[in-house]
Design a protein around this nucleic acid. Structure first.
Lengths: 199, 199
DNA sequence: GTTAGCATGTAAGGAGTTACATGATTTT
DNA sequence: AAAATCATGTAACTCCTTACATGCTAAC
């Protein structure tokens, strides 16, 4: 049972699938990847890397002294890690509908089967719809500010539902079109863009 | 320093200011008050109540056997609790701009000074503006889905900024009316709820 | 030569979750 | 009588944060 909280691990594995990275760089990219409200701290990342080492999902690699003499520990994904990542990303179960998990999976959609993408998008949408139904149901006469807060929250969720609906439609139509032959995803394997710094 | 994580405690104190309640009921109301993504668990609530008892913010009250013979432990807020609540709710410092804390404070705006309300709303808005600036700055050419995710996130934040702007204006005009006699504007106290912006 | 940023960690602790445990009362 | 729901808790665990601790290297 992989259960739930593996968001960080998955994100790391996803990034390492593109190229090996060291911790410091990894943190910067993670902060870019999902626009976390607060920046991910080292106290979070490094222990996670240790766990993943123990689990056999990643390995340390010798620093190629070419570019810089700086000592750093470069991590690389292992076959076991790839397998784990694939199985988690493919799992469109309830865990995938939750906020954080959903964003994670969405961010790696380029490496996800079209069918799985659809299932995840639809699952997310019905999850949000449930929330709306519940919220609507309880909208009693309350404090003015509480009411306003709820109204705004509900509107946000409605917006996301519309967004998902558009995406689902787009996925469906592109799936239809690919009834024919080769229609590979755009996924530009372009060499690394300059590492955008975030402070 | 109590500093940050006191969201749950504050919410409990806020509710207990209206009337004494027992744990079970408290949990239901907390789940209503802020539309938490996941429901608050008892494993969270009861230990929090214990902490608050120790801190002297609340006390247990004998169950009035009138309504029901059911055994329950009713909690009541103490003067010390009220004082703590007031000081936290009034503190418009950086902690108040964060997502959870902001929602908490907003939910209890009816019991907050107009001046403090304004400071909190404005602080929140500039916090979000900062996020937007940062996001805009780094919007490089990325994976298609990552780009889309970021675009949607940015739009959500922009929406909240507009919402805050409307609220701030509403607060300002109602403050003007109650302050000097100079503003004869008979604007309704309710914020202008038309908000037709569909992305 | 000193500051700024790169780079890696550990320790203590906060806040919440799930799963476990128990039992009373109301509804069907 | 059974089932639902009310009601209160505890234990183990997860995940993350802050603050601390260290030292290298590039740039000014």
């Amino acid at each position: 049972m992989p259960s739930k909280g593996a968001t960080l691990e998955l994100a790391v594995l996803g990034l390492l699938q593109e190229s090996p990275l060291h911790g410091y760089e990894l943190r910067k990219r993670l902060n870019l990847l999902l626009g976390w409200t607060r920046l991910l701290s080292y106290g979070s990342l490094y222990p996670a890397l240790k766990r993943m080492l123990r689990a056999g999902w990643i390995t340390e690699v010798a620093t190629s002294a070419a570019a810089s003499r700086r000592q750093r520990i470069v991590y690389q994904i292992t076959p076991a890690g790839m397998e784990y990542f694939a199985s988690e990303i493919t799992d469109a179960g309830p865990a995938a509908w939750e906020d954080e998990n959903f964003n994670m999976r969405f961010a790696f959609f380029s490496r996800t089967d079209a069918a799985v993408r659809l299932r995840i998008l639809e699952g997310r949408r019905s999850r949000l719809q449930e929330r709306l139904d519940r919220a609507h149901h309880l909208a009693g006469g309350q404090d003015r500010y509480v009411t306003e807060l709820r109204r705004h929250a509900a509107e946000s969720v409605e917006r996301e539902v519309r967004w998902l609906t558009d995406l689902i439609e787009a996925e469906r139509s592109s799936q239809d079109r690919s009834g024919h032959q080769a229609r590979p995803e755009p996924a530009p394997a372009t060499p690394d863009v300059t590492t955008t710094e975030i402070s």
